[in-house]
Write a protein that binds this DNA or RNA. Structure first.
Lengths: 232, 232
DNA sequence: ACCTGAACACCGTTCAAGT
DNA sequence: ACCTGAACACCGTTCAAGT
């Protein structure tokens, strides 16, 4: 790497700055990206569309962000950094629940953010503005009697549950059978009731049950179970 | 839809069958797809590569599978259907743990299969050969005293945890910092220790802890917590 | 310093024509 | 009945040339 700041000769211009004037900025790009996602959905965010949105050439973007992954990471840090911290209860176990729920709700509202987190190994790519949520969970776990190492395991377990819930639910949201029927019908239709009796007994209400939000009660059960583990 | 079976006039040929002879088959396509994934990795499975592998034109594939999603689903059902059923213990709670672990281990070995499951709303798209794993968990939960409805919630919670664990770990596996350093360094480097003390205290061993397999103990804690929930 | 169009190396899928 | 090449409508990214 031989690049270092200020090594490039700069042609002076009238206004004291140098070179061709910018037609956009990183801030503008991020704002446009967010607008595009909110309007057309996450899967429509492509480098080319984003450029078109801004009225610039696709290649111009590469002067403001390293690549698409970099863009997504910037977007994510910005978003998580703006999540307001929750009111924390004094009971440590309940504090874990509230902290995790805050994380969950923030990411549920922006499920695409979670896809970035999953793909990128998440923690290492966030900056401090986003990592405070992790800190909350760790602190509460330590308060509940965990060693720092155990607290990390508690956090990870909760993170897996939370990430799975959001990802699966986000993707299942509007899935229908081939014919547009809700899945119950399909489920029932080709089910050998004699071989799978329990599945058969709930097949006709599966999609109703699957639509119910059970995140928090199950999370509470998980936290209780984790904190009650032997060997601590 | 005006298509119905046998409505197309068929030119007879010498061997008693009709039309141009096939150069491949669905079974051959699935076998080649699996080989391609095992050899080059899941992300290299594209319609065009798969066709090249088989020595046929990309468009020929569309006579044997509806589209790429259909191909993945066929692949997945085949795989899950071949998973051997586990030895089940008599204790219902432990039976949930063993059943879920079987599901987990099978999908861990084939993480790309899980991506399909997540994307496609999973359950409704599987056939009976794959759904027996769900049945095992439901049956065990009912044996443990759950109503069928509660059993579905138990299954879903466990599924979220399992799916999250596999997805996050599969994607985090080989993530390094920009400079190829393990993430601990990056984590430590830009960490404001005074603001995030608990995170700071584990930063240097984070990646070691994150590499530890904690699936089963945490699952057991989860199951214990779920079955101990009030209001049942 | 910043922007641009052309180009590269890909995708999944459709469709008319051939055997 | 099955196969084919050409074509469509896209991707992310690089690079030499322009202002």
């Amino acid at each position: 790497m031989s690049l270092h700041d200020g090594s490039v000769p700069r042609p002076k211009s009238a206004n004291g700055r140098t070179g061709r004037p910018p037609v956009t900025s990183r801030a503008q790009i991020l704002a446009a990206a967010r607008q595009l996602i909110d309007r057309d959905g996450w899967e429509k965010l492509t480098v080319r569309r984003l450029a078109a949105e801004l009225g610039i050439g696709p290649t111009t973007l590469y002067h403001h962000v390293r690549d698409k992954e970099d863009l997504l990471l910037l977007l994510l840090n910005e978003y998580v950094g703006q999540v307001p911290p929750p009111e924390l209860p004094s009971d440590p176990a309940e504090r874990i629940v509230v902290s995790a729920t805050t994380m969950h709700d923030a990411l549920s509202a922006w499920p695409w953010a979670l896809e970035i987190l999953t793909v990128d190994g998440f923690l290492g790519r966030l900056d401090d503005s986003a990592r405070w949520i992790v800190e909350l969970v760790l602190a509460a776990a330590v308060d509940a009697g965990c060693t720092p190492e155990q607290a990390v395991h508690v956090f990870r377990s909760i993170w897996y549950y939370t990430a799975g819930e959001i990802l699966v639910r986000a993707h299942s949201a509007h899935v229908r059978g081939d014919d547009g029927q809700p899945l119950d019908r399909t489920l029932l239709a080709n089910l050998k009731a004699t071989q799978l009796p329990h599945l058969a007994s709930v097949a006709n209400k599966w999609s109703v049950l699957a639509a119910e939000d059970n995140y928090e009660p199950a999370l509470r059960a998980f936290v209780t179970g984790l904190l009650a583990q032997p060997g601590r």
